[in-house]
């Protein structure tokens, strides 16, 4: 899938032609540099590797520095492979947010906000155990039974329990692009996207 690397800026809302308020997320999308073009002959598949975000040279390893120098660019922070672009790109080309058009539908991949160690009510939408009365105490947000007793004498794999929540890769599909501002490299996507402000996301066409 064709796409671009971007940075989540934050949320705002704009008015459409009918005067309806649309909540949207502002993403700084690109410009990304083509750092590698993969072909079937050499790599076994077709893809374009894009790079985004500045990085200091002293924080770059020598092999990576060589990789960037080959493309004729400064060291970048994030590298992502994309495929199936409409245009053909060469090393060092810039890919901007103009690959998107207003009204297009896209997918956004990001890392969700970390929620820490969470119980089953928040993590798996359990409803807790029973009410608060009839002698019941401290069971309000408990998971309840995890299974039978003497058989199987163990907890089955895959039982939903408390644990770490968030801070994982999330893909959101069917998001509409409301506006594209090519001069500022900004795109506005309808609704929310995963991650906190300033986090890196990939917008797929």
């Amino acid at each position: 899938m064709a796409g671009i690397i971007g940075k989540k800026i934050g949320m705002t809302s704009i008015f459409d032609a009918d005067g309806i308020n649309i909540p949207c997320t502002v993403v700084e999308a690109g410009p990304c540099v083509v750092t590698q073009v993969k072909t079937i002959e050499i790599d076994g598949y077709n893809a374009v590797q894009l790079a985004f975000g500045e990085k200091k040279e002293k924080h770059t390893t020598q092999p990576m520095l060589g990789h960037f120098t080959k493309a004729g660019t400064t060291p970048k922070r994030d590298l992502v492979e994309f495929a199936e672009f409409e245009k053909e790109y060469a090393l060092g080309d810039l890919v901007g947010c103009d690959i998107f058009q207003e009204g297009d539908f896209c997918e956004v991949v990001g890392t969700s906000k970390g929620k820490g160690f969470q119980g089953v009510v928040r993590r798996h939408n359990f409803s807790g155990v029973g009410g608060a009365t009839h002698g019941q105490h401290n069971r309000l947000r408990a998971p309840g039974s995890r299974g039978a007793s003497s058989w199987p004498s163990r907890v089955f794999k895959g039982i939903r329990t408390a644990g770490h929540m968030g801070n994982e890769r999330v893909k959101m599909q069917n998001l509409q692009i409301v506006k594209v501002l090519p001069e500022q490299n900004l795109i506005l996507i309808k609704g929310a996207i995963p991650g906190h402000k300033g986090s890196i996301v990939t917008v797929l066409k």
Binding site: I9, G10, T12, I14, V26, K179, L181, Q184, L186, L188
Partner: peptide, 13 residues
Amino acid sequence: MDLLKLAEQQLIE
């Protein structure tokens, strides 16, 4: 945050 304001300025009358 500045980019957010920039987008708002352009798109909101």
